[in-house]
């Protein structure tokens, strides 16, 4: 293929990847920003969302769009509920001790993976996109649904931003993030805020999974990649900065896409990985983070 169309395709793929990254990272950005705990099971909430999406779409009759819409509502509710439960039953009892939380969430990871393996099975199963629309360029075809994911990501991110900036609950979350002790002194029930944030983060991961699963597949081990990628995005962006998260997603997505034009796939992946690492080496606070100890 000629260079021009190749670059066009790579850029579009980069944008889609950026959208996928931003979608998976936004939940973690919230949890990590407010609670400062490393939740190793975050990717598993994503996986649960995708697997539940398969169950929901498979059991709702009628056109695929109907089942998909149902999944968009049901999956985040269930996953959010599970997360709230996990927070109350486990993380709270550990006082969110950073080290203990890592072990506990690794434990949760095993439990969720086993549950998915036993109840859903080891296969990768496709979930049909709500619409089947293809864009045919002179040089290649492209999935219309992938472009819809970019739009959905933008909408969802705007929604989260509005929630954080405009609503009372957003204010409470930001207050808790800023200073936990003072928030408590002002009568904020920090425990409830944490449970809410943890549930909301998991629900956002599930929404992302439902949106993304038609372009990937539901599989019980699919949580690993979103976990790592969303950590990378959140930290490159700068802790607690939604704007940074989005910008980091675009940076990583585009560089990954465009580097692949010039190098063979594995070499491209190595270079893109090192590039991202070097961004942090020379800007340890992330793109939009404040310098802090």
């Amino acid at each position: 293929m000629d260079f021009g169309p190749f670059l066009l395709l790579a850029t579009m793929e980069g944008l889609v990847m950026a959208a996928v990254l931003a979608l998976t990272a936004v939940g973690l950005s919230l949890v990590f920003g407010v609670m400062r705990v490393v939740n190793v099971a975050h990717g598993e909430f994503f996986m649960l969302g995708a697997v539940l999406a398969w169950f929901v779409t498979a059991s709702v009759p009628g056109p695929p769009a109907l089942g998909f819409a149902a999944a968009l509502v049901v999956c985040p509710l269930i996953v959010g509920g599970i997360a709230a439960l996990a927070d109350r039953a486990i993380l709270k009892r550990l006082d969110y001790d950073p080290e203990a939380t890592i072990v506990a969430t690794i434990g949760l990871l095993y439990i969720f993976q086993q549950a998915a393996l036993s109840l859903y099975g080891p296969d990768a199963r496709p979930v049909q996109a709500p619409f089947d629309w293809r864009l045919q360029f002179p040089w290649f075809g492209y999935s219309g649904y992938k472009l819809a994911v970019v739009a959905a990501a933008a909408l969802l991110l705007l929604g989260v931003r509005q929630l954080l900036v405009r609503s009372r609950i957003g204010l409470v979350m930001r207050a808790t993030q800023y200073d936990r002790e003072t928030a408590t002194a002002f009568g904020i029930d920090v425990d409830r805020v944490y449970a809410l944030v943890f549930a909301l983060g998991a629900a956002l991961a599930a929404v992302a999974a439902v949106l993304i699963v038609p372009i990937q597949q539901a599989h019980y081990l699919m949580g690993g990649d979103p976990l790592l990628l969303s950590f990378i995005v959140v930290i490159i962006g700068g802790l607690g900065s939604l704007r940074g998260t989005v910008l980091a997603a675009v940076l990583i997505g585009l560089s990954d896409g465009i580097v692949s034009v010039f190098f063979s796939p594995t070499l491209a992946k190595i270079l893109a990985t090192l590039l991202v690492a070097l961004v942090l080496v020379f800007r340890p606070q992330g793109l939009f983070g404040q310098r802090a100890a």
Partner: peptide, 28 residues
């Protein structure tokens, strides 16, 4: 020499990325 320019979570991610690059190098 590179990663210790960072601390905390950034160190965590930089080491993760270097290790990932190392893994891919073995495949390469």
């Amino acid at each position: 020499l590179l990663a210790l320019r960072t601390t905390g979570v950034a160190f965590m991610i930089v080491t993760l990325m270097f290790a990932q690059a190392g893994y891919l190098l073995i495949l390469y």
